[in-house]
Design a protein around this nucleic acid. Structure first.
Lengths: 261, 261
DNA sequence: AACTGTTGTTCCATTTTTTGGAACTATCTC
DNA sequence: GAGATAGTTCCAAAAAATGGAACAACAGTT
């Protein structure tokens, strides 16, 4: 067990609900001896990975991590490009937009553009959602061949709501729809009360894949706006796909969009 | 030499001009044996600190670092609050706004809000500027007693332009002005062609201090807009200072603002 | 297709760091 | 100021890191 792995574990302790940690936090969260926790936190601070909060014994991520973390979106320039596209759409229609990536069977928000409407969807960056029960997740899963999707769910799936796919076959059917229509849609699934529209795009040279998504409060969905969002997302993603030479991109087929969601 | 320190050194290799690294990059940048560089990068990837770029032998920061880095602004909630204030002002007037922190004799941009004007100032997040030759830097230095400022510059200072303070005494004189007026201003200093207005605020419980800044292309400065920016920044910062109980905040004294910059 | 320079990986014994229990110190709470 | 809680330091045993060199993969060239 290298100290590097303990250090990475410490970083994984941070979350949107835990902005700083103490020696005892590590003891309880990671089950590590107090002595190690104490020395590890100090070492990480000395190396510039963490900072102490004022005079207290609390440790938080450092400015260095903030800076290096910001580079992620440029290193994965696909994210930056997609974020720009979503930002423009979100600005124009006033609803929340965001970018997600998939890690195994989960999707994780990377960047977000909060909407301007009084009733808006707030997505927490860094939150993990089950891929099969969200539009971003299915948009990304649709890029995989069916057999790879199957291997992701050796245990089958447990749906969080009635509108989500109830089993693996239902999921594969919806992925087929996404491939044919060019966009993914969800309603009241992993996040209740939220309607989401997503399109995925990739960069074959880096292997990165992201989903571009616009979310609307489920009660406010209007057919005209919905079509505008689908068109805008697909158009933006198609431009990116052309740029990166993404051959797995599914172009929009409006015939599928015109039936109400 | 702990492996942690090597890992931190690797992270420091990343910059706005170097989004990924290879084994040889580490050998040349850090002078470490090839064998170590190879194993270190692999170990950091295995622990989730780095990712490989597609199939290549290039390594870039990971999603984990991106997420932990994002938490910085919430952990240091002063940054988040200040960022909100600057975002509103930047949105309203269309000029670029940003937040900086000081590390020793340098200031580093943490968040940025690009302006909407065709001619806009683009600030790179993570770039280091000399504190004494920027408005953000001086706004933050003004919070220190003079003798601490002196110890920061044991070698004196070398001004990057004629409008920057030419020596330590000139710097201290300008810091005194800032304490009296409540805001800092720079024109054509560390960044040529840029006029900047800054106000600093701190949080005594965490020891954090940040500068709120709005930048304008030097050719576009108008007295009325300038006064509006000064007032808005100072007002926003004053609210934060009240919230955190910052006793070192310098309130606005408009008498100083009304003489042209 | 063989050659060549470049880049990355693996192996090894030696050196250095890490580990975890326990004793110790500091800090907080009532 | 007693008692509890939180954090630090010490130590020998165990584990990991080091750097040189041999090896392997790769890209470009003739």
């Amino acid at each position: 067990m290298s100290i590097l792995s303990s250090a990475a574990d410490v970083l994984r302790c941070f979350s949107s609900t835990r902005h700083d940690v103490t020696v005892t936090d590590l003891v309880t969260l990671l089950g590590m001896p107090k002595s190690n926790a104490s020395r590890l936190l100090r070492a990480m601070r000395d190396e510039g990975l963490l900072e102490t909060v004022g005079q207290t014994k609390r440790y938080r991520p450092s400015l260095l991590l903030n800076q290096v973390g910001q580079l992620y979106r440029f290193a994965a320039s696909l994210i930056d490009r997609s974020d720009a596209v979503v930002g423009v759409i979100s600005d124009r229609i006033g609803h929340t937009g965001y970018i997600s990536v998939r890690r195994g069977a989960h999707v994780i928000g990377v960047t977000a553009h909060p909407g301007r409407h009084a009733l808006r969807v707030v997505t927490a960056i860094g939150d993990r959602l089950p891929a099969f029960a969200s539009s971003t997740g299915r948009a990304l899963l649709a890029r995989l061949p069916d057999e790879e999707v199957r291997t992701l769910y050796p245990e089958g799936l447990s749906a969080p709501s009635e509108t989500a796919p109830q089993d693996l076959e239902a999921l594969l059917a919806r992925l087929a729809e996404i491939r044919a229509s060019g966009f993914a849609e969800s309603h009241d699934e992993a996040v209740r009360g939220v309607h989401a529209i997503s399109v995925a795009v990739g960069d074959p040279t880096t292997g990165d894949e992201v989903a571009l998504c616009i979310t609307i409060p489920a009660t406010l969905v209007e057919q005209q706006e919905r079509l505008a969002i689908i068109a805008a997302l697909s158009e933006g993603a198609a431009e990116i796909a052309a740029l990166t030479g993404d051959t797995r991109f599914f172009p929009l087929n409006l015939a599928f969009a015109e039936t109400a969601p």
